[in-house]
């Protein structure tokens, strides 16, 4: 057991340290440039987008936001529930499976792992009609279930692999010592694996959440009731009502991104806590 590393070593502001910050800041600037551009674009009208794409100049069309909000707002909560449901289920089953594949021994383990592994390599663009037919036969159309269940079914292979790698890297003694202490597998999962995996679970949650958040065609075809549909449907209406108006559309994107940003700050906190918890365990 040791205390957090960062607290021992005092930050020293040498040239090397400064250089690190410079590199990372440059990377961040490059990564964030599209976001900056998106915000700038969101207050432009059609003409400004075409004639001055990269420049910032008045007049600023803040009314874009009002219009975009009126299209998106009725659907935001639907998307929130759908994304939360999908994330909880998907992350839950993935963590369980990842832990089991990483640290437990059981027959056919490799076969089962291969089922998931191979699926990663299969392109899925032909799946729409077969998937829809399945959802229809199951009688779950017009609910959030097709989105949630199919998300849990399709988005986990890579992440099971991630979880397995992280669990497997941890020393076996850690798990054995808990078994010696009399914990059952569920307790080990809950009190050891989960904290260890926390950063990856946070990262995975963000990924799953964003992908459900941005999904358009699948919820569109499986949810026919207008008022149960997700916000991407609102965005599609917005695009269709203002064709070629990228300013208006990006205003919609910005609004759609705000809930995601909130989520990021929450999960990033988890990320940090996870690291600390992990460090103490070690």
């Amino acid at each position: 057991m040791s205390i957090n590393f960062s607290k021992i070593v005092r930050p020293s502001y040498t040239i090397a340290e400064f250089a690190k910050h410079v590199v990372i800041v440059l990377v961040c600037v490059a990564l964030l440039f599209p976001l900056f551009l998106m915000i700038v674009m969101s207050v432009k009208d059609k003409e400004q987008v075409v004639f001055s794409f990269f420049t910032i100049q008045p007049p600023f069309h803040f009314e874009n936001y009002l219009v975009a909000f009126s299209y998106i707002s009725p659907f935001i909560m639907n998307s929130v529930w759908m994304a939360i449901g999908s994330t909880v289920l998907t992350v839950g089953v993935t963590a369980l499976a990842g832990y089991a594949f990483g640290k437990l021994e059981f027959p056919f383990k490799n076969v089962l792992f291969w089922i998931l592994f191979a699926k990663m390599m299969l392109p899925g663009i032909m799946n729409l009609i077969p998937s829809f037919t399945l959802a229809w036969k199951l009688g779950i159309l017009d609910t959030s279930l097709p989105v949630i269940l199919f998300c849990a079914g399709t988005s986990q292979p890579f992440w099971v692999f991630v979880m397995r790698t992280f669990v497997a890297q941890q020393p076996q003694e850690l798990f054995e010592s808990m078994r010696i202490d009399g914990a059952n597998e569920l307790q080990i999962f809950r009190y050891l694996a989960i904290p260890l995996l926390r950063p990856m679970l946070a990262l995975m949650s963000i990924n799953v959440f964003v992908s459900v958040w941005n999904d358009y065609i699948w919820p569109l075809v499986t949810i026919q009731s207008f008022d149960k549909r997700p916000l991407t449907v609102g965005l599609a209406y917005l695009t269709s009502a203002h064709p070629g108006d990228y300013g208006m559309l990006t205003a919609g994107y910005v609004i759609a991104a705000l809930p995601l940003l909130v989520l990021f700050f929450i999960s990033m906190k988890q990320f940090i806590e996870g690291l600390t918890a992990g460090a103490i365990k070690l």
Partner: peptide, 16 residues
Amino acid sequence: FVAPAIGLNLLFDWYP
């Protein structure tokens, strides 16, 4: 532990 993941994957990804 792996049953939910495998089950969901088989039914909603592999089957279609």
